[in-house]
């Protein structure tokens, strides 16, 4: 058994794993909408930020 066979097997297994990952990604709908996620990733923090802002505003108006 030559080392070439081992290397070939490993490289093809890795390639096939990536290929399976790709198929799974398509199946789960990742490629259906390629815009919204790019906006969504920037959110998350906003809710926390607004709270201190809000109290400042309230103090001002009082």
């Amino acid at each position: 058994m030559s080392v070439i066979y081992v290397l070939l097997t490993i490289s093809i297994i890795i390639a096939v794993l990536f290929f399976i990952a790709f198929i799974k990604a398509v199946k789960s709908g990742q490629y259906d909408d390629d815009y919204t996620p790019s906006v969504r990733i920037l959110f998350e923090d906003e809710l926390v930020k607004t709270k201190p802002n809000k109290t400042i505003k309230k103090q001002k108006s009082n």
Partner: peptide, 27 residues
């Protein structure tokens, strides 16, 4: 716009019985 995505995906803040909401901007 991005505000639309943000508010619609935070619908559960307005009504806790909404478990999840997801926008598809293109469609």
């Amino acid at each position: 716009c991005s505000s639309c995505i943000w508010i619609l995906e935070n619908l559960n803040k307005l009504n806790p019985n909404i478990t999840a909401s997801q926008v598809n901007f293109g469609k």
